[in-house]
């Protein structure tokens, strides 16, 4: 027993994802049934759902096969820790909050740096938004280097197993917010927590909604760091990518952005700086300006809307 409550052995913490998997399957079946019977709002399509589920299964396999490197780095950082923070229920709660902010920044980088986007794009590649979309997860996260963002927490003194535990708990929380079945919760809840409404905005391909609501569990980080956009009933979310995929093949879904990067980098006549930018610049950046980043898409969308407003006012006059 410590000041923070009973001591826990970090090595015996359960894997929340594995524990929750039977419930994920059950809830997908329930949502699918109720959506089909028109009792709930939503949309399911066989091949889309199958791809999402295969991506989810593959991500577990990928995590085991490729996750070792990241875990070794965390163990290395933990060996150099400033202090030792015992694993207790309270310290896990504090770690969950800190790690939720880590998730926020990692997620934000995943949308703003193409190398990380190549991994995260998989989660956004469905044109549907239902509980099965939550399970559409990348296979190659282990090589993305995203674990580096967890190392400060290990350096402070949190055990790597505890870090993995709270990270997985965060992902389990995010399962239920992938639904169109829920409208909005009471204002206090929407103010503090990430909800279906906030996350629908995050999955939308409408220019207005791009690059917003990166939260894992607490939406407060978006409010704090200026990336919050509320769901606008006048502009329903359209889900998917700016350029949607023309395949349901899980292998292509898992690797398409990496292939895109390689193709871009291999173009003839580029400077080293331009080649690097194809890895590190925001998605949509191109050396010849032939594509658009989300910032440019947003700007153009605003201009168009202003133009339309002017035309409407003129017509009314």
């Amino acid at each position: 027993m410590s000041f923070f409550g009973p001591l826990l052995d970090p090595a015996t913490l359960p894997d929340p994802k594995q524990v929750a998997t039977p419930l994920f399957i059950l809830f997908v079946l329930i949502e699918l049934t109720l959506v089909h019977r028109r009792r709930l709002k939503g949309d399911y399509e066989t091949r889309d759902t199958l791809t999402s589920l295969i991506m989810g299964t593959g991500s577990v396999l990928g995590g085991v096969l490729l996750g070792g490197l990241g875990y070794l780095c965390l163990l290395g950082a933990y060996d150099m820790r400033l202090t030792t923070i015992q694993t207790t229920p309270l310290s896990l709660f504090l770690l969950f909050l800190l790690d939720d902010m880590r998730f926020y920044w990692g997620h934000r980088f995943s949308h703003r740096i193409r190398w990380f986007w190549a991994d995260h794009v998989i989660h956004h590649s469905s044109q549907h938004y239902n509980l099965s979309t939550a399970l559409r997860q990348p296979w190659l996260s282990g090589i993305s280097g995203m674990f580096l963002l967890q190392t400060p927490l290990a350096l402070i003194g949190f055990h790597p197993a505890a870090l993995v535990f709270v990270g997985a708990l965060n992902l389990v929380y995010q399962f239920w917010i992938h639904t169109e079945a829920v409208g909005r919760f009471p204002r206090w809840f929407e103010a503090v927590f990430n909800t279906p409404s906030h996350h629908r905005v995050h999955h939308a391909r409408n220019a207005k909604y791009l690059d917003a609501n990166y939260a894992g569990t607490l939406i407060v980080w978006d409010r704090l760091f200026g990336s919050f956009i509320p769901e606008d009933d006048a502009e329903p979310a359209e889900y998917g990518l700016v350029k949607n995929l023309g395949t349901f093949n899980p292998l292509r879904v898992a690797t398409h952005e990496y292939v895109g990067i390689l193709k871009d980098v291999a173009q003839r006549g580029l400077t080293i700086r331009q080649r690097l930018a194809y890895f590190l610049a925001p998605p949509g950046w191109s050396h010849d300006g032939s594509r658009m980043t989300s910032d440019e898409l947003k700007r153009r969308d605003e201009e168009r809307k202003k133009q339309n407003e002017k035309t409407t006012v003129r017509a009314a006059d």
Partner: peptide, 10 residues
């Protein structure tokens, strides 16, 4: 010229 994809991802 070389195939340059005209795409924007976000």
């Amino acid at each position: 010229r070389g195939p340059i994809e005209r795409k924007a991802t976000a």
